[in-house]
C-alpha cells in the first residue's frame, strides 16, 4: 500500500470511530436534559450490584488466574477450552444457560430456592449474570499479568526467607499490578455493560443497560441520552485511564 493511501485509510478509520460519540454530543438536548422516571434507581442498582459482582470475580478469579499462570497439568487444554467457551458464548446464550441451571425449574435453582436464594429477577440473579459475563475476561487478563512476572523473582523471595504467601503479596502482586488493574477494569466494563445475560435472568432489578432498553422502547431515542451520559461517566474513566497507563508503560 502506498503511504498516502495508508494515511487516508487510517484517518477514515479514526473518523468512523469518533463519529458515534460526536453524534451523541450533537444529539443531546443540553437545555432540556431530564432523566426518565427510575433512571436514578437504575444507576444505583448498576453501581451497587456491579461492585458486588466485581468483588466476587476478583476473589474467585485471582486464585484461578494465578494457578493457571503457574501450573501445567495433564488435561490443561480442557481448562483452557472451558475458559474460552465461557468467553466466546454469546451473552444471550449464556443467559439461557443460566436460566436453565439456576432458574426456578433448573437443578441448581430448585435446590437454592429451597435454601432461600431466588436466582431469577432478584439482586443475586443480577450479580450472578454479571459474574458469568465478566469472569472469563478477568481470568484471562489476570493470567497474562501473572505470567509476565519472572518466576525467578518469586523464587528469590523464597530464598530470602519469605513464605510462598508473602512472596505472592510482596513480589508477584506488585509486579503484576498494572496488568491486574487492567483486568479489573475490563471486568468492570463487562459487568456494568452486560445486557444479554442480565436481560434473561434479571430483567428486574433494572440496571442501566436494561433501563436504557426500556426507555428506548417506551419513549424513544431522546429518552436514553441522559442515562447514556451517566453510563459513560461511571463506566469508562477507570478503564480508560488504566488502558492509557498500560500503553504508556509499553511505550
Amino acid at each position: 500500500m502506498r503511504p498516502r493511501l495508508t494515511t487516508f485509510a487510517a484517518a477514515l478509520a479514526l473518523l468512523l470511530l469518533a463519529a458515534p460519540f460526536a453524534g451523541l454530543a450533537i444529539a443531546t438536548d443540553w437545555r432540556h436534559l431530564g432523566f426518565a422516571r427510575g433512571d436514578g434507581d437504575a444507576v444505583a442498582v448498576s453501581l451497587g450490584l456491579s461492585l458486588v459482582a466485581l468483588a466476587l470475580i476478583v476473589a474467585l478469579g485471582t486464585p484461578l488466574a494465578w494457578w493457571l499462570a503457574r501450573h501445567r497439568v495433564r488435561g490443561q487444554w480442557l481448562v483452557d477450552a472451558l475458559l474460552l467457551l465461557a468467553l466466546l458464548t454469546p451473552p444471550l446464550a449464556m443467559g439461557l444457560l443460566l436460566a436453565t441451571m439456576y432458574g426456578p425449574y433448573g437443578p441448581a435453582g430448585q435446590w437454592l430456592e429451597r435454601a432461600g436464594l431466588l436466582l431469577t429477577n432478584s439482586a443475586p440473579a443480577f450479580v450472578i449474570a454479571q459474574f458469568y459475563a465478566a469472569l472469563p475476561y478477568y481470568v484471562l487478563a489476570a493470567r497474562a499479568a501473572f505470567e509476565g512476572v519472572p518466576r525467578e523473582l518469586e523464587q528469590i523471595a523464597l530464598t530470602l526467607g519469605h513464605s510462598p504467601a508473602r512472596s505472592f503479596f510482596r513480589v508477584s502482586l506488585p509486579l503484576a499490578r498494572l496488568g491486574l488493574a487492567a483486568a479489573v477494569a475490563l471486568a468492570w466494563v463487562r459487568a456494568l455493560g452486560e445486557f444479554g445475560v442480565v436481560l434473561i435472568v434479571a430483567y428486574y432489578p433494572q440496571g442501566i443497560p436494561v433501563k436504557l432498553w426500556t426507555n428506548l422502547q417506551d419513549t424513544g431515542l431522546s429518552a436514553v441520552y441522559p442515562l447514556l451520559w451517566v453510563f459513560f461517566l461511571v463506566a469508562l474513566p477507570l478503564p480508560l485511564a488504566l488502558g492509557l497507563a498500560v500503553r504508556r508503560r509499553l511505550a
Binding site: Q155, I156, L158, T159, L160, G161, H162, S163, P164
Partner: peptide, 8 residues
C-alpha cells in the same frame, strides 16, 4: 527454600 540459610 525459605528455611535454608543460603544466599543465592
Amino acid at each position: 527454600p525459605q528455611q535454608r540459610a543460603v544466599g543465592y
